[in-house]
Design a protein around this nucleic acid. Structure first.
Lengths: 195, 195
DNA sequence: GTCTATACAGGGATAGAC
DNA sequence: GTCTATCCCTGTATAGAC
């Protein structure tokens, strides 16, 4: 790597975040050093502190941005007509959104325990808001008699775990296309809630 | 903690493993130091090396034992009569076995990336054998026409993710008993495969 | 805005006394 | 079988030169 000359105001910050995201996802927060992140960006370790207060803030900011993006992206999805359509929209949205940002998703699920208590509370609240989206769909469907869901909270957790699990095994080089995966999961979800 | 006197041949080894399991599950492999493990056991850090070759072996042994236990425990479950009964037996077994050892399960899922490449291969092979158990049940059911499963590999991954997810939210102090959780998941699984 | 240099704590692992 | 002492490395973070 050649040494950098001149300034990079405005672009080094995002590059620090990108490098941290990639490295945290690959090796885990605790296993990654500030020196490694700096090397990835092409600066010295000390320079990172111009862009982040400390390592913990780097993790917290990544997780918070990810969850805010997630909620914002969901709100941009057109409202479906009725519980069944909304459930299908949610399923497709969840899979597509998560497959598109595997590193951020991985960190959000694996590094909760690396958050300091106050940061943890904030992230948990954001995650809860997203789970509530699905739970409301299931509750509406059950109330309308179109779903058979004896326990909406349990079903919410079960379905989210199932959907998020796609990230652990899906590979673009594999047998199935993303669209095909979406279709198959939609089938399973629909049947699981008795729609 | 009072200082220990005398020898503890035969019991310190298991205590080291137990302490490592608890700490790795709570804080993550990379975040836990040998000194912390030693403190938990009540010995000095150097003494740990009488019971393990190094920190990596400690992790590998924990994961390998867990997966061997899992396979052995499954083999002790009575064979069900037909795919539907076998699927229910698997569902109940998986939930019960996993809820009973949350730390080992957590480590097995979260610390794959902390394994050195050769150890990783061994663990992945063991995990694959367990997934094959479910896949075979689904394939048999599909072949017999009692399940509607367009893609058995995908369904296997989806169901295992769903079932293992129980560990992330279930609390004994919560609303639902373990038996009730098993019942509800059995319903969802049965419906998901169109049984 | 980035560098070098450095402070200081803590890491894994080993040697040798008891 | 466990201890103390230690080696050597790496960690985060800061200070001050350029």
């Amino acid at each position: 790597m050649a040494r950098k000359s001149g300034s990079h105001a405005g672009i080094t910050g995002p590059r620090v975040r990108d490098a941290a995201e990639r490295l945290f996802a690959r090796h885990g927060y605790a296993a990654v050093s500030m020196r490694q992140i700096a090397a990835e960006v092409g600066v010295q370790a000390g320079a990172l502190y111009l862009y982040t207060r400390d390592k913990q803030s780097l993790l917290f900011d990544l997780m918070q941005s990810h969850l805010r993006d997630l909620m914002q992206a969901w709100q941009a999805v057109p409202e479906g007509d009725g519980p069944a359509a909304r459930l299908e929209a949610f399923t497709r949205f969840h899979i597509r959104h998560h497959l598109a940002r595997p590193d951020a998703v991985f960190i959000a699920y694996m590094e909760l325990r690396s958050l300091e208590p106050e940061n943890f509370k904030v992230i948990e609240a954001l995650r809860k808001r997203y789970e509530d989206v699905l739970e409301e769909i299931l509750r509406d469907g059950a109330a309308a008699g179109v779903f058979t869901v004896p326990d909406t909270k349990l079903a919410t957790m079960a379905l989210i775990a199932m959907l998020t699990g796609v990230n652990t095994w899906y590979r673009d080089s594999g047998r199935l296309s993303r669209d095909r995966v979406e279709d198959l999961y939609c089938d399973m979800v629909r049947r699981a809630v008795g729609a």
